[in-house]
Amino acid sequence: MTSSAAPASLEVSGLAFAYPDGHQALFGIDLTVGRGERVALLGPNGAGKTTLVLHLNGILTGGAGSVKVAGLPVEKRNLAEIRRRVGIVFQDPDDQLFMPTVREDVAFGPAASGMRGAELEARVHKALERVGMAEYADRPPHHLSFGQRRRVAVATVLAMEPEILVLDEPSSNLDPASRRELADILRALDVTVLMVTHDLPYALELCGRSVILSGGTIAADGKTADVLADEELMRTHRLELPFGFDPRAAAAKA
């Protein structure tokens, strides 16, 4: 799957992890995401998706195996650079947006890495522009609608110009229009995306490739249309399509 010369955006190999209470969440994960790819990470609740995501920027460490982001290993001495390269958008935008105004929130990441002044201002404006929220820069986040907050949350990590954008349930709690608007924004971005989601039509719409994580191992890795159409596979891993949704027909239409 990986493209030629440039190192893959994400290389996970042999990653295993057990929580301090003994619960083993990951059993040897191998996953490579090439530059510019959009990959959906599917799986039932408790499959280890969040655990995997928290390994990508070194919040969780200490298990076996390795994670590399654009060739740089996730290690203590690289953490600052890793966290700049891996932009995680968490599920609840109220957790993600912690500054008093939208502008300051988007500025937080780049400012933390030392950017100041006009350069910072330009970076913030560009990130907000990309999600269509530039005119809300001076608003406090709690005065925005949920969909707007989710878009600002995406801008906060875009402002760091990440190598890979990791989205945790990007479509959750969005009304259909906001959900589509977010899809348009994500499609227009020229960045590698790893999208954790239960929203299978959304995965089909946005991601050419899907990976099923189940019971702490990769259970499937292939074209989204094929993965979703494999009824046996889907049933085994507690994945269900919405009523009346036919992945083959939808993929053919797209």
Partner: peptide, 11 residues
């Protein structure tokens, strides 16, 4: 969770 989000952005 907020702290996690902050750390993820280089706090």
């Amino acid at each position: 969770r907020v702290h996690l989000a902050m750390v993820s952005r280089g706090y």
